[in-house]
Protein backbone atom coordinates (compact mmCIF):
# COMPACT_ATOMS: atom_id res chain seq x y z
CA UNK A 1 0.00 0.00 0.00
CA UNK A 2 1.26 3.44 -0.86
CA UNK A 3 1.94 5.64 2.12
CA UNK A 4 -0.18 8.84 1.92
CA UNK A 5 2.73 11.23 2.56
CA UNK A 6 0.66 14.29 1.71
CA UNK A 7 -1.99 13.48 4.31
CA UNK A 8 0.58 12.75 7.03
CA UNK A 9 2.52 15.94 6.28
CA UNK A 10 -0.57 18.11 6.35
CA UNK A 11 -1.85 16.51 9.54
CA UNK A 12 1.46 17.13 11.30
CA UNK A 13 1.56 20.68 9.96
CA UNK A 14 -1.99 21.39 11.15
CA UNK A 15 -1.12 20.14 14.63
CA UNK A 16 2.07 22.24 14.70
CA UNK A 17 0.33 25.40 13.48
CA UNK A 18 -2.49 24.90 15.98
CA UNK A 19 -0.08 24.35 18.87
CA UNK A 20 2.14 27.27 17.91
CA UNK A 21 -0.77 29.69 17.60
CA UNK A 22 -2.25 28.60 20.93
CA UNK A 23 1.14 28.73 22.69
CA UNK A 24 1.88 32.18 21.26
CA UNK A 25 -1.56 33.38 22.32
CA UNK A 26 -0.93 31.95 25.80
CA UNK A 27 2.37 33.74 26.17
CA UNK A 28 0.87 36.91 24.67
CA UNK A 29 -1.28 37.14 27.80
CA UNK A 30 1.90 36.92 29.87
CA UNK A 31 3.57 39.46 27.58
CA UNK A 32 0.60 41.79 27.86
CA UNK A 33 0.76 41.75 31.64
CA UNK A 34 4.53 42.22 31.75
CA UNK A 35 4.40 45.04 29.19
CA UNK A 36 1.53 46.81 30.93
CA UNK A 37 3.49 46.50 34.16
CA UNK A 38 6.55 48.02 32.49
CA UNK A 39 4.49 50.90 31.08
CA UNK A 40 2.95 51.61 34.47
CA UNK A 41 6.18 51.17 36.44
CA UNK A 42 5.11 47.95 38.18
CA UNK A 43 6.73 44.51 38.32
CA UNK A 44 3.94 42.38 36.86
CA UNK A 45 3.45 38.63 37.40
CA UNK A 46 6.59 37.18 39.03
CA UNK A 47 5.41 34.45 41.42
CA UNK A 48 4.60 31.39 39.27
CA UNK A 49 7.89 29.97 38.05
CA UNK A 50 11.04 31.95 37.15
CA UNK A 51 10.06 35.52 36.10
CA UNK A 52 6.44 34.41 36.39
CA UNK A 53 6.80 32.32 33.23
CA UNK A 54 4.26 29.73 34.43
CA UNK A 55 1.62 32.43 34.98
CA UNK A 56 -0.39 31.58 31.79
CA UNK A 57 -0.68 27.95 32.97
CA UNK A 58 -1.82 29.10 36.38
CA UNK A 59 -4.36 31.44 34.78
CA UNK A 60 -5.66 28.65 32.56
CA UNK A 61 -6.00 26.25 35.48
CA UNK A 62 -7.81 28.92 37.48
CA UNK A 63 -10.27 29.61 34.64
CA UNK A 64 -11.03 25.91 34.15
CA UNK A 65 -11.67 25.19 37.83
CA UNK A 66 -13.74 28.29 38.53
CA UNK A 67 -17.46 27.91 39.10
CA UNK A 68 -19.35 28.09 35.86
CA UNK A 69 -22.55 30.09 35.90
CA UNK A 70 -25.10 30.01 33.10
CA UNK A 71 -27.80 32.60 33.84
CA UNK A 72 -31.29 31.09 34.18
CA UNK A 73 -32.89 33.64 31.86
CA UNK A 74 -30.28 33.10 29.14
CA UNK A 75 -30.65 30.96 26.06
CA UNK A 76 -28.42 28.02 27.04
CA UNK A 77 -27.63 26.66 23.60
CA UNK A 78 -26.68 30.04 22.14
CA UNK A 79 -24.86 30.99 25.35
CA UNK A 80 -22.49 28.07 24.79
CA UNK A 81 -22.38 28.56 21.01
CA UNK A 82 -21.10 32.17 21.26
CA UNK A 83 -17.61 31.58 22.70
CA UNK A 84 -17.28 28.39 20.63
CA UNK A 85 -17.75 30.32 17.37
CA UNK A 86 -15.29 32.99 18.52
CA UNK A 87 -12.59 30.43 19.29
CA UNK A 88 -13.25 28.34 16.16
CA UNK A 89 -13.04 31.25 13.74
CA UNK A 90 -9.92 32.52 15.50
CA UNK A 91 -8.17 29.19 14.85
CA UNK A 92 -9.44 28.70 11.27
CA UNK A 93 -7.63 31.62 9.66
CA UNK A 94 -4.11 30.32 10.16
CA UNK A 95 -4.71 27.57 7.56
CA UNK A 96 -3.77 29.73 4.56
CA UNK A 97 -0.72 31.50 6.02
CA UNK A 98 2.57 30.43 4.41
CA UNK A 99 4.98 29.90 7.31
CA UNK A 100 8.04 29.36 5.17
CA UNK A 101 9.23 28.16 1.76
CA UNK A 102 9.63 24.39 1.91
CA UNK A 103 11.68 21.82 3.76
CA UNK A 104 13.43 18.93 2.01
CA UNK A 105 12.86 15.82 4.06
CA UNK A 106 14.01 12.54 2.53
CA UNK A 107 13.89 13.88 -1.03
CA UNK A 108 10.38 15.29 -0.63
CA UNK A 109 9.65 19.02 -0.69
CA UNK A 110 7.35 19.66 2.24
CA UNK A 111 5.41 22.91 1.95
CA UNK A 112 5.28 24.96 5.13
CA UNK A 113 1.68 26.00 4.49
CA UNK A 114 -1.41 24.01 5.37
CA UNK A 115 -3.24 24.85 2.16
CA UNK A 116 -2.58 27.18 -0.74
CA UNK A 117 -5.95 28.20 -2.16
CA UNK A 118 -5.88 30.78 -4.94
CA UNK A 119 -8.29 33.06 -3.05
CA UNK A 120 -6.35 33.03 0.22
CA UNK A 121 -6.99 36.66 1.20
CA UNK A 122 -10.71 36.34 0.58
CA UNK A 123 -10.78 33.23 2.75
CA UNK A 124 -9.22 35.18 5.61
CA UNK A 125 -11.73 37.93 5.03
CA UNK A 126 -14.69 35.52 5.00
CA UNK A 127 -13.62 33.89 8.28
CA UNK A 128 -13.18 37.31 9.90
CA UNK A 129 -16.70 38.27 8.82
CA UNK A 130 -18.09 35.03 10.30
CA UNK A 131 -16.29 35.83 13.57
CA UNK A 132 -18.77 38.62 14.28
CA UNK A 133 -21.43 36.01 15.13
CA UNK A 134 -19.51 34.72 18.15
CA UNK A 135 -19.71 38.09 19.90
CA UNK A 136 -23.22 38.85 18.67
CA UNK A 137 -24.80 35.53 19.65
CA UNK A 138 -23.03 35.46 23.01
CA UNK A 139 -24.12 39.00 23.85
CA UNK A 140 -27.72 38.41 22.88
CA UNK A 141 -28.02 35.00 24.55
CA UNK A 142 -26.88 36.44 27.91
CA UNK A 143 -30.21 38.29 28.12
CA UNK A 144 -28.57 41.29 29.75
CA UNK A 145 -28.85 44.87 28.54
CA UNK A 146 -25.15 45.59 28.95
CA UNK A 147 -24.24 42.43 27.05
CA UNK A 148 -26.62 43.28 24.22
CA UNK A 149 -25.26 46.83 24.00
CA UNK A 150 -21.71 45.49 23.95
CA UNK A 151 -22.58 42.92 21.29
CA UNK A 152 -24.29 45.52 19.10
CA UNK A 153 -21.36 47.87 19.46
CA UNK A 154 -18.89 45.11 18.64
CA UNK A 155 -20.73 43.90 15.58
CA UNK A 156 -21.48 47.34 14.16
CA UNK A 157 -17.86 48.31 14.70
CA UNK A 158 -16.61 45.14 13.02
CA UNK A 159 -18.85 45.39 9.96
CA UNK A 160 -18.04 49.10 9.58
CA UNK A 161 -14.29 48.55 9.61
CA UNK A 162 -14.52 45.46 7.41
CA UNK A 163 -15.41 47.73 4.47
CA UNK A 164 -12.28 49.86 4.77
CA UNK A 165 -10.21 46.72 5.36
CA UNK A 166 -11.60 45.10 2.21
CA UNK A 167 -10.88 48.26 0.21
CA UNK A 168 -7.26 48.35 1.39
CA UNK A 169 -6.92 44.69 0.39
CA UNK A 170 -8.39 45.52 -3.06
CA UNK A 171 -5.55 47.99 -3.64
CA UNK A 172 -3.04 45.35 -2.54
CA UNK A 173 -4.53 42.74 -4.89
CA UNK A 174 -4.28 45.29 -7.72
CA UNK A 175 -0.53 45.66 -7.19
CA UNK A 176 0.18 41.97 -6.69
CA UNK A 177 -2.24 40.61 -9.28
CA UNK A 178 -2.98 37.50 -7.22
CA UNK A 179 -5.09 36.55 -4.22
CA UNK A 180 -3.03 33.58 -3.11
CA UNK A 181 -1.06 34.38 0.03
CA UNK A 182 1.76 32.09 -1.05
CA UNK A 183 2.27 33.96 -4.32
CA UNK A 184 1.96 37.34 -2.60
CA UNK A 185 4.75 36.41 -0.19
CA UNK A 186 6.85 34.88 -2.98
CA UNK A 187 6.57 38.11 -5.00
CA UNK A 188 8.03 40.07 -2.12
CA UNK A 189 11.27 38.10 -2.15
CA UNK A 190 14.58 39.99 -2.14
CA UNK A 191 13.23 42.94 -0.20
CA UNK A 192 10.43 44.11 -2.54
CA UNK A 193 8.05 44.34 0.39
CA UNK A 194 4.53 45.54 -0.31
CA UNK A 195 4.81 48.21 2.37
CA UNK A 196 6.91 50.19 -0.14
CA UNK A 197 4.14 50.08 -2.74
CA UNK A 198 1.15 50.28 -0.42
CA UNK A 199 2.04 52.49 2.59
CA UNK A 200 -1.42 54.06 2.83
CA UNK A 201 -3.09 50.68 2.32
CA UNK A 202 -1.04 49.20 5.16
CA UNK A 203 -1.92 52.11 7.43
CA UNK A 204 -5.65 51.60 6.79
CA UNK A 205 -5.31 47.83 7.21
CA UNK A 206 -3.51 48.29 10.53
CA UNK A 207 -6.17 50.61 11.97
CA UNK A 208 -8.92 48.25 10.80
CA UNK A 209 -7.08 45.31 12.36
CA UNK A 210 -7.17 47.11 15.70
CA UNK A 211 -10.91 47.69 15.28
CA UNK A 212 -11.60 44.10 14.18
CA UNK A 213 -9.75 42.78 17.22
CA UNK A 214 -11.73 45.06 19.56
CA UNK A 215 -8.50 46.28 21.09
CA UNK A 216 -7.76 49.69 22.55
CA UNK A 217 -8.33 52.39 21.27
CA UNK A 218 -11.33 50.57 19.76
CA UNK A 219 -12.31 48.43 22.76
CA UNK A 220 -15.73 50.05 23.21
CA UNK A 221 -17.57 46.70 23.12
CA UNK A 222 -16.08 45.81 26.49
CA UNK A 223 -15.72 49.31 27.83
CA UNK A 224 -15.83 48.82 31.62
CA UNK A 225 -16.76 52.38 32.48
CA UNK A 226 -20.08 52.24 30.59
CA UNK A 227 -20.95 48.60 29.97
CA UNK A 228 -19.60 46.60 32.96
CA UNK A 229 -17.85 44.02 30.75
CA UNK A 230 -19.61 44.41 27.43
CA UNK A 231 -20.67 41.27 25.61
CA UNK A 232 -18.99 38.94 28.11
CA UNK A 233 -20.53 40.46 31.25
CA UNK A 234 -22.51 37.30 32.07
CA UNK A 235 -19.74 34.87 31.19
CA UNK A 236 -17.63 33.11 33.76
CA UNK A 237 -15.06 30.35 33.98
CA UNK A 238 -13.61 28.89 30.77
CA UNK A 239 -16.29 30.44 28.52
CA UNK A 240 -15.00 33.86 29.50
CA UNK A 241 -11.52 32.41 29.04
CA UNK A 242 -12.36 31.35 25.47
CA UNK A 243 -13.59 34.84 24.58
CA UNK A 244 -10.47 36.47 25.99
CA UNK A 245 -8.20 33.82 24.52
CA UNK A 246 -9.81 34.14 21.08
CA UNK A 247 -8.76 37.78 21.10
CA UNK A 248 -5.14 36.79 21.59
CA UNK A 249 -5.28 34.06 18.92
CA UNK A 250 -6.82 36.63 16.56
CA UNK A 251 -4.05 39.04 17.42
CA UNK A 252 -1.44 36.41 16.54
CA UNK A 253 -3.16 35.52 13.26
CA UNK A 254 -3.72 39.11 12.17
CA UNK A 255 -0.08 39.92 12.97
CA UNK A 256 0.87 36.98 10.76
CA UNK A 257 -1.45 38.16 7.96
CA UNK A 258 -0.05 41.68 8.15
CA UNK A 259 3.56 40.50 8.04
CA UNK A 260 2.72 38.18 5.14
CA UNK A 261 0.80 40.78 3.13
CA UNK A 262 2.96 43.86 3.68
CA UNK A 263 6.28 42.85 5.24
CA UNK A 264 7.44 40.01 3.05
CA UNK A 265 6.37 37.14 5.31
CA UNK A 266 9.31 34.75 5.66
CA UNK A 267 11.55 36.86 3.41
CA UNK A 268 14.92 37.91 4.85
CA UNK A 269 16.58 40.67 2.81
CA UNK A 270 19.97 39.72 1.27
CA UNK A 271 19.78 36.09 2.45
CA UNK A 272 20.45 34.89 -1.11
CA UNK A 273 24.03 36.25 -0.93
CA UNK A 274 24.95 33.94 1.96
CA UNK A 275 24.64 30.76 -0.12
CA UNK A 276 22.91 28.70 2.58
CA UNK A 277 21.12 25.43 1.83
CA UNK A 278 17.39 25.66 1.24
CA UNK A 279 16.46 23.90 4.50
CA UNK A 280 18.46 26.38 6.57
CA UNK A 281 16.91 29.28 4.66
CA UNK A 282 13.43 27.87 5.30
CA UNK A 283 14.01 27.51 9.04
CA UNK A 284 15.64 30.94 9.30
CA UNK A 285 12.77 32.39 7.24
CA UNK A 286 10.23 30.92 9.62
CA UNK A 287 12.09 32.35 12.62
CA UNK A 288 12.30 35.75 10.91
CA UNK A 289 8.57 35.60 10.13
CA UNK A 290 7.91 34.74 13.76
CA UNK A 291 10.04 37.69 14.88
CA UNK A 292 7.93 40.01 12.68
CA UNK A 293 4.77 38.57 14.22
CA UNK A 294 6.11 39.12 17.74
CA UNK A 295 7.00 42.70 16.85
CA UNK A 296 3.43 43.30 15.66
CA UNK A 297 1.99 41.73 18.81
CA UNK A 298 4.23 44.04 20.84
CA UNK A 299 2.95 46.95 18.76
CA UNK A 300 -0.67 46.00 19.56
CA UNK A 301 0.16 46.00 23.26
CA UNK A 302 2.20 49.18 23.08
CA UNK A 303 -0.81 51.01 21.59
CA UNK A 304 -3.15 49.46 24.14
CA UNK A 305 -1.24 50.83 27.11
CA UNK A 306 -0.54 54.23 25.53
CA UNK A 307 -3.64 55.51 23.76
CA UNK A 308 -6.99 56.17 25.49
CA UNK A 309 -10.28 54.83 24.17
CA UNK A 310 -12.37 56.58 21.50
CA UNK A 311 -15.90 57.80 22.06
CA UNK A 312 -18.42 55.79 20.06
CA UNK A 313 -19.40 58.58 17.65
CA UNK A 314 -15.70 59.32 17.06
CA UNK A 315 -15.17 55.66 16.23
CA UNK A 316 -17.97 55.63 13.66
CA UNK A 317 -16.81 58.96 12.26
CA UNK A 318 -13.29 57.61 11.80
CA UNK A 319 -14.54 54.43 10.18
CA UNK A 320 -17.08 55.81 7.74
CA UNK A 321 -15.95 59.34 6.97
CA UNK A 322 -12.17 59.06 7.08
CA UNK A 323 -11.00 55.49 6.54
CA UNK A 324 -13.44 54.43 3.79
CA UNK A 325 -12.83 57.55 1.61
CA UNK A 326 -9.09 57.17 2.23
CA UNK A 327 -9.25 53.53 1.17
CA UNK A 328 -11.18 54.43 -1.99
CA UNK A 329 -8.64 57.15 -2.83
CA UNK A 330 -5.90 54.57 -2.30
CA UNK A 331 -7.61 52.21 -4.76
CA UNK A 332 -7.89 55.00 -7.36
CA UNK A 333 -4.27 56.10 -6.86
CA UNK A 334 -3.08 52.52 -7.21
CA UNK A 335 -5.12 52.14 -10.40
CA UNK A 336 -3.67 55.34 -11.89
CA UNK A 337 -0.16 54.26 -10.88
CA UNK A 338 -0.57 50.85 -12.51
CA UNK A 339 -2.05 52.40 -15.66
CA UNK A 340 0.89 54.75 -16.17
CA UNK A 341 3.72 52.42 -15.21
CA UNK A 342 2.68 49.36 -17.20
Amino acid sequence: MEIPYELIEKTILVVIVFTVSLLTAMYSTYGERKISAFFQDRIGPNRAGPFGLLQPLADGAKLIFKEEIIPISSNKFLFILGPSISMMTACLTSAVIPWGTYLEIGGRAVEMQVTDINIGILYVFAIVSIGVYGVMIGGWASNNKYSLMGALRASSQMISYEIAMGMSIVALIMTTGTMSLKEIVAQQAEGHWNIIYQPLGFFIFLICAFAELNRTPFDLPECEAELVGGYHTEYSSMKLGLYLFAEYVNMFVSSAVMSALYFGGYDIPFIEYLGLSSNVVAVLGFLFFFAKIVLFIFFFMWIRWTVPRFRYDQLMHLGWRILIPMAIINVILTGVFILFTK
Binding site: I117, N118, I119, L122, Y123, F125, A126, S129, I130, V132, Y133, M136, W140, L148, A151, L152, S155, S156, I159, E162
Partner: peptide, 24 residues
Amino acid sequence: EFLAIVNLIVYAGAIMVLFLFVIM
Protein backbone atom coordinates in the same frame (compact mmCIF):
# COMPACT_ATOMS: atom_id res chain seq x y z
CA GLU B 1 -13.98 28.90 -5.27
CA PHE B 2 -14.45 32.59 -5.89
CA LEU B 3 -18.25 32.35 -5.89
CA ALA B 4 -18.16 30.18 -2.77
CA ILE B 5 -16.09 32.66 -0.77
CA VAL B 6 -18.01 35.70 -2.05
CA ASN B 7 -21.28 33.97 -1.14
CA LEU B 8 -19.88 33.45 2.36
CA ILE B 9 -18.64 37.05 2.71
CA VAL B 10 -21.71 38.77 1.29
CA TYR B 11 -24.58 36.61 2.50
CA ALA B 12 -23.34 34.89 5.65
CA GLY B 13 -20.95 37.64 6.70
CA ALA B 14 -22.78 40.85 5.89
CA ILE B 15 -26.46 40.50 5.07
CA MET B 16 -27.27 37.97 7.77
CA VAL B 17 -25.47 40.11 10.37
CA LEU B 18 -27.89 42.92 9.53
CA PHE B 19 -30.85 40.51 9.81
CA LEU B 20 -29.62 39.37 13.19
CA PHE B 21 -29.15 42.99 14.20
CA VAL B 22 -32.75 43.88 13.45
CA ILE B 23 -34.15 40.82 15.19
CA MET B 24 -32.03 41.46 18.28
